[in-house]
Write a protein that binds this DNA or RNA. Structure first.
Lengths: 131, 131
DNA sequence: AATAATAATGATAACGATTACTGTAATTAG
DNA sequence: CTAATTACAGTAATCGTTATCATTATTATT
């Protein structure tokens, strides 16, 4: 069953994910971790991001523009994509609301709903200020 | 600018999107439209899917597994991804609930929310039957 | 502590999805 | 009908991601 082995690279990737709120792409993680491990490989970053996602220590977020992004925040929460500047931001609904949405969805649906992820679209406060 | 010009290929793509509920990938659209236009190019399919998306006559859906999918249903609605078989299904919340979610989200968020798209995860009824 | 076993790494090649390019054909305007 | 312009098919190029493989690091065993 492929026992997990410690690696400094993985720790660094995990630490970065947990301490940033940038929702970085794999490439951004790569450039960041490269400061500590100058010859880390992009493949290693992908391998570990996928591993962390599989064991539930990271979350993968898909958006309609460009590559996937990764998030070290594990509590259920949602995201906002600014249609002007493209920034991806956290957006917290209280747990009760998230549960409520899943419950409403289950009413009209013939299957089991275990989780959900909402992507909100609009204009972020920075872009509003500029116009 | 770039005035839009009619094309039979685009009409066919659009028609297929509007009459299926399969949420096809670009490649599936390609294989389908190929029956009517045997030597249509995959590039033409992509170009038109993106065009239709840009002018609001189609919607692009991103999931964490594989390529984007396209949807010709324009009314706000949501989707369900079965984590067992990978099927992407429509999931309707009544308009009121969708608005309510957007309203709840806006309370905790400093920006303008214009729309949202929720992807629900779980097990579909077919997979439940099989187990 | 030395050795054996196994998993992780870096480097690079391969891959699948998507976009860009180009010369030709179809559509619209004058 | 002719000119102008947009869309096309075909193909090459690009981008994000995964796979391969020989070497290195970590863990288990003696």
């Amino acid at each position: 069953m492929a026992a997990l082995k410690y690696s400094r690279q993985r720790e660094s990737i995990k630490h970065y994910l947990m301490t940033t709120d940038e929702h970085p792409t794999a490439d951004t993680v790569y450039m960041h971790v490269k400061k500590e491990f100058p010859n880390i490989s992009l493949g290693t970053v992908y391998r570990n991001l996928n591993l962390l996602t599989d064991i539930g220590e990271a979350v993968k977020i898909s958006t309609p523009d460009g590559g996937d992004r990764f998030d070290g925040r594990l509590e259920p929460h949602n995201h906002f994509l600014c249609t002007k500047c493209g920034r991806l931001l956290d957006l917290d609904l209280d747990m009760h609301s998230i549960d409520e949405v899943n419950r409403l969805a289950a009413e009209n649906f013939d299957g089991i709903i275990t989780s959900s992820s909402t992507l909100f679209y609009g204009e972020c406060s920075d872009c509003i200020k500029k116009s």
